[in-house]
Each structure stands twice: as C-alpha cells, then as structure tokens.
Amino acid sequence: MARSGKPKLAVFKFASCGGCQLSLLDLEEELLTLAGELQIAYFVEASKAAVRGPYDLTLVDGSITTPHDAGMIKKVRRASKFLVALGACATAGGIQALRNFKDVKEFQAVVYPRPEVIDTLDKSTPIAAHVQVDFELQGCPINKGQLLAVISAFLQGQTPSVPHHSVCLECKLKGNICVLVARGLPCMGPVTHAGCGAICPTYQRGCYSCFGPKETPNTASLSERLRCLGVTEADLVRAFRTFYAGAEPFRRESEAHEK
C-alpha cells in the first residue's frame, strides 16, 4: 500500500470516558477523507492494526492517574512529533481530578471492597504536568469541528488556533437573550472558554463550564454576581469544582468558598 508519504496519526487513551477520541469517529462525513490524508497508525478503539512510531500527529485523550500511565505518557511523547491534548481530562485532569481535593484512600474504600491492593496516584493530572504538549484543545467533550480544524491546520503545516474568548461572546453571536441577566439563571458563561457554541443558554439553562476557564477569567467577580442571585457558598464550591476542577483558576476559586 502506498502509505509511506502520508503523515502518521496516533490516538492514545488514558483515564477518560473515551468521548474525545470518539469525536474522531463521530466525524462521520469527513472520516473517510481524513483516512485518505493521514495514515491511522495507532488507534486501538478503531483498529487491530498498529504501526510503530514515530508519529507525526498524536492525539491524547485522558488524564494521568496511575504510575503505569505516568511512565507511558513519556514513551508516547518520545514517539510523537506534534502532540495534542484533547479535552478536559488531558488538559486539566478531568472530573476524576475531584480526588485531588480528598484523600484518595477514602475514595478507594467507597468503590472497592479490598482497597488495599490498589495502585493509583493521589492526583489526576493533565498531560502537560508530565510532558511538553504542543497544543491543547479544551472541552468535555471537545467540539468535533474544532478537532477537525486542528487536524486540518496540522496537515497544512500551520499552527492550530481556536478562539479563546468566553461563552458570552458565542451567545451574543447566536443572538441569545442572556439567561443570567434576563432570567436570573446562574451561568458560568462569563468565565468559560468558548467552543461549545453556547449550547446551554440556547437550551434555556445556564452554562456549567464543561469547557473550563477562558484566558484570564474573573472568577471572583462572577461569584459575587451569582451570590446576588442567591447562590450559596457550597453551591459556588460545586460550580467551580466539576469537569475543570483541576484547572488553576477554578481550583483557587472553589477553595476560596470553602469554609
């Protein structure tokens, strides 16, 4: 097969729901075209065939939560020319980073009858805490259109780029009426990274920040505003402690509201 000229794509999964790597298969209309442009060299969820590295483009889904994975990600980095971290888990530790605020031993005992034989790290950490990452794409899950844009940019030799503004701007572009101002719904849009297309406000609910912090978020100001709507301190802790609990600005803000 005349595959040698095509860039080699690899997909690796660590601790995650697998949704971000699934986004690649959810590109139903573009998938066969992509397969023509790239050699899918390593993607265990999709193929039995595995080609050895080095890989030109590596997509990493999931966070690092075990000693084994902490070693594995270093091997993946060595085998990769351009490494992209996909989603909340790979860029901030994901929902499983909620363990970072607790004693992991206690967590193990809740789930396992015999927690003493467990080998897991105290914290769930993003890929960038372990190796150099060339690009991060936020979202729980990522937006598949953005994934396609990142892959296309790579194929054209350009540096990928996605908008870094807040969900608020997407909402305005859609012509939505502000759910926070007009309806008094608690909304995380002002501090949340764009990319989802402001779907929650479009469906009449407040944003719950599954895309994590935008650049330079003013979390304290939003907390103040939410408090005026009757949001309690405990609710504020929960609001900043979801899929991006491990991201620095959200971690700090959630801790500020803990007694």
Binding site: F14, A15, T65, T66, D69, G94, I95, Q96, L98, R99, K102, V104, E106, F107, Q108, V110, V111, I118, T120, S124, Y208, C210, R238, T242
Partner: peptide
C-alpha cells in the same frame, strides 16, 4: 484506570447526577 465516580458523587446535588 479507576475514576471513582461513586466516591465523588457523595456531597453533590441530585440535579448534578445526570451531567
């Protein structure tokens, strides 16, 4: 790898469970 859902659900609100 384990992600401990049943553990971190403790203390969350009923309304958060679906998400």
């Amino acid at each position: 790898p384990p992600r401990f859902f049943e553990a971190f659900l403790k203390g969350r609100l009923f309304s958060e469970a679906p998400d």
